[in-house]
Design a binder for these strands. Structure first.
Length: 501
RNA sequence: GGCAGCGUGGCCGAGGGGUUAGGCGGGGGCCUGCAAAGCCCUUGACGGCGGUUCGAAUCCGCCCGCUGCCUCCA
């Protein structure tokens, strides 16, 4: 029985080339990943959860394969315009005025909420989580550099990127496939459009109106940085140019990531990124979920069940599994029943893990075809993970393994049908695949104290005695009342199991 | 209007010229004092019309329906 798993080369779909490509790091074994983080002016929603989970799994997988990953994900705490505001008011500033708080207080609050939600989803924190407002000098420097190289112009204290000039020397729209002529017909109603020479030009620095609170000194005006600048600055600073993987939602391809490329090329004559990876969006009733449409569900609402569309509170791992049961480049149409299904499925996977940990593989009466299946499902797990991070297919292999584990546990603690070698392999890979790579972890089952744990053991043994003398009234009362407290008892041939809900 | 993409069984979702995706749910059986969990069996799908092919859910064309980007967004 061959128990060595060969892991195929990782392939990723590169938006830049519109093809799946073999992943070859620029400086192996080091890998730099930058993922566009949240704008911290409101509660994070399911869309944030998706991007975070997808790139968390990519990072975990590359780590698992032995790469040394530096994962950078920013906090945008300044500089994005409010879409429905005709004044072009800064999002965070607007929110601050409404709530009578300092802008930084808002940003700090929502940064904390975001990080807490990510922790519940078991997303590993970034190695570096840089804030836009902490990199104003670097952003000013970059604007100067682009001005020096002649790809920007100053108007009334604001600086704009000169797209037509850029397009003469370099190719425009390499990421989005957009053509410059097509953008000329697009009408803009945003303020400041009259300052731009071309509709496709975009701001590198904006002069702040007198009422604006968040503003900094610059050579051109007291103002604030343009909307695409921070990412260029921070990925160059922490990962170097070029770096390996830049991730984010598909809605960022144009204009945000296109502008990042132009800024980087204009400043250093170098495209910043080798592999552009984009996750698809989450829809609700077939419509995109977004802040501006107001149809979003926040992550916390899912965890507490406090939303009209939710019938109950869901376990964070149900959200994580729901996301991973879909390929990252497909749309997820969100539903309550989908979450409910994912939660059941999650329990199935972790129950199998618990059972597996209690089994001992002794061999002696090996079922060779089942052993071959185990090895094959494990092999396929890695094959699908390497094939453009196909977590949907990879998870399907784990369900197959869970079925086998359940079957094996019917043999009792000592399993003869599987050799020690294959059994250990199963233990090792099932657990790693589920918890380390996919990040799906069992519920923490700590009982508050060793005393309570002892009390629980006493109740279970009293109930066993009651069952033995067929006092089912007492046995059921103990089980029902514990259930009300969220402790579930399950009688199995191996004894009574308990689980905290 | 331009660009990109999607339409798969009751629901969610992979796949992508012939060979079981998987999950949730439904039905039947086993186990069990009951319950839960689990096991076995089972149901059933590729938007429509043409074409290519020995063979199409998969390729091509047209049609219908839906979505995203083109304005902040994950």
């Amino acid at each position: 029985m061959k128990t060595k798993i060969e892991i195929p080369a990782v392939k990723l779909y590169n938006t830049r080339t519109r093809k799946k490509e073999e992943f070859i790091p620029i400086n192996p074994p080091y890998v730099g990943i930058y993922v566009c983080g949240p704008t911290v002016y409101s509660d994070p929603h399911l869309g944030h959860a998706r991007a975070a989970v997808v790139f968390d799994v990519l990072r975990r997988y590359l780590n698992h394969l032995g790469y040394k990953v530096r994962f950078v994900s920013n906090i945008t705490d300044v500089g994005h315009l409010e879409g429905d505001s005709d004044e072009g008011e800064d999002k965070i500033q607007k929110r601050a005025r409404l709530e009578q708080l300092e802008p930084m207080e808002i940003a700090q609050h929502y940064t904390r909420v975001y990080n807490m939600s990510m922790a519940k989803l078991n997303v590993i924190p970034p190695n570096i989580q840089p804030h836009a407002t902490c990199h104003i000098p670097e952003q000013i420097e970059l604007v100067e550099k682009i001005l020096e190289r002649g790809f920007a112009y100053v108007v009334n204290g604001s600086v704009y990127f000169d797209v037509p000039k850029y397009a003469k020397k370099y190719q425009y729209g390499v990421l989005s496939g957009r053509r410059l002529e097509e953008l000329e017909n697009v009408s803009r109603e945003l303020r400041g459009v009259e300052e731009k020479r071309h509709p496709a030009d975009f701001a590198l620095w904006k002069k702040a109106p007198p009422t604006h609170i968040m503003k900094w000194k610059s050579p051109w005006s007291v103002g604030f940085p343009g909307w695409h600048l921070e990412c260029t600055v921070m990925n160059a600073k922490y990962l170097g140019i070029p770096f390996d993987i830049h991730g984010g939602g598909m809605d960022l391809i144009f204009p945000h990531h296109e502008c990042e490329i132009m800024q980087s090329v204009a400043a250093w004559d170098t495209e910043p990124v080798k592999y552009w990876v984009h996750n698809n969006l989450i829809t609700i009733d077939g419509q995109k979920m977004s802040k501006s449409l107001g149809n979003f569900i926040t992550i916390e609402q899912v965890f507490t069940g406090s939303h009209d569309r939710l019938s109950k509170a869901y376990h964070p791992m149900a959200v994580r599994l729901l996301i991973l049961q879909t390929h990252y480049r497909s749309v997820i149409d969100f539903s309550d029943s989908g979450l409910a299904g994912a939660e059941r499925a999650y329990k199935r996977l972790v129950q199998a893990l618990k059972k597996l940990n209690n089994l001992e593989f002794v061999g002696g009466n090996e079922d060779t075809s089942m052993q071959a299946q185990i090895v094959e499902y494990i092999r396929k797990f890695y094959e699908f993970m390497s094939d453009d991070l196909n977590t949907a297919r990879a998870v399907a292999q784990l369900f197959e393994l869970a079925g086998i584990i359940n079957k094996l546990s019917g043999e009792g603690k000592f399993v003869k049908t599987i050799s020690k070698e294959v059994g250990d392999m199963l233990k090792n890979h099932y657990s790693k695949a589920l918890t380390d790579i996919l990040g799906i972890v069992p519920e923490e089952e700590h009982v508050d104290s060793t005393r309570l744990y002892g009390v629980l053991q006493i109740l279970i043994s009293i109930r066993q005695e009651a069952r033995a003398r067929k006092d089912f009234e007492l046995a059921d009362r103990i089980r029902d009342q514990l259930k009300e407290l969220g402790i579930i008892l399950r009688d199995t041939p191996q004894g009574t199991e308990w689980e905290i809900e």
